[in-house]
Amino acid sequence: MKRRDFLKGCLMCSAAAAVGTGSKAQAAGSFEGYPDAMGVLVDLTRCVGCRSCEAACNKEQRLPEPDVPFDDTSVFEEKRRPTERAYTVVNKYETGQGEPVYRKIQCNHCNEPACLTSCFVNAYTKTKEGAVIYNPKICVGCRNCMIACPFNVPGYSYSSAFNPVVKKCIFCHDTRLKNGRPPACVEACPQEVLTFGKRADLIKLGHERIRETPTRYYDKIYGEKEVGGTGWLYLSSVPFDKVGFDTTLQNEPIISNVKDFLGMVPMVLAIWPALFTGVHLLSTKNKDGHDDHDDSHNGTGGH
C-alpha cells in the first residue's frame, strides 16, 4: 500500500513539474517584449566621455560615494564594468581612427532576460514599461543571474554580511520610468547620446540615422537582435567588437539554450518510474517475491 501511495505521489509531482516546465519551455523564445516597452538608443558617436550619466545615476540611486570625482578622466585608463557601487560606467576605446569612442555600459534590459529566467525565486521582473527590476526581499544570493547575464551587468554587495543583494541598473523604474519619465542618466546627458522612447520607435529611429548619415555609422543596431533583443540599443561609428561589445552573442534568448534540458525533464519524470518499476518486476519475477533480499539483509533472520 505504502509503496503504491509513494509512487502515486511521485507521479503526481512529476505531472505537476512537467506542466510547469513544459509550458515555460514553449514560451521561451517567442516573447518579443511588451509592445509599449520603453528603451534607450545610445548613440556612441555623440558621447564625449563627460561621465555626467555616472554622476546622475549615483545621485538618483543613492549609491555610495565614488573613489574619485565624476569629472576625473583617469578612470578611463582601465576598462570598468558595472558593480554594486556604480550601475553605469563609461569606458574609453582608442579605435585608431581619429577620436576615441566612449561606451556607456549599464543593464541592457533584455526582452527576455537571462537573469530573470535563471532566477529560482523569480526575484526579477520585466515590467511592461520595459525595465528589468529586482526584488531584494526574496533574493537568496545564489548569484546565478551574474553567471547568466551575457553582458556581465549585475553586481553583488558582497561586503554586506547580513543583507547582501544584487545591485544593477533598474532603468530608474521606481522613481521615474513608472511615471513616464526618462531615467536620470538620459536627462543628465549633455550630448543627448541617450534617446529615450518606445523600443519599437527607437529601432526605426536608429535605422533612419544610419540611412541619413551612412558615413557616420556602422550599419548595425546592437541590441536589436542580440539575445532576443534588448531595451537599450547602441549605434556606433566603428564595428562593435572594437569598442568592447560581445559580437558573438546568439540572437535567441539565453533561455533557449536551456530548452533542450527543460524539454527532457517531463520525459524523465513520466517515463522513468514506469520503466524502472517494470524492469524491477521483470528482473525479480522468478524469485520468491519482491523483498527476497530482505531476510539476507537482516543478518541471521531475525523474523
Partner: peptide, 16 residues
C-alpha cells in the same frame, strides 16, 4: 553632483 571640489571623496582612491 560630480563629487568634485569640496565634495571630492575624502578616502584614498582604489581601496575597498
Amino acid at each position: 553632483m560630480f563629487n568634485a571640489g569640496e565634495f571630492a571623496p575624502k578616502k584614498p582612491a582604489g581601496k575597498g
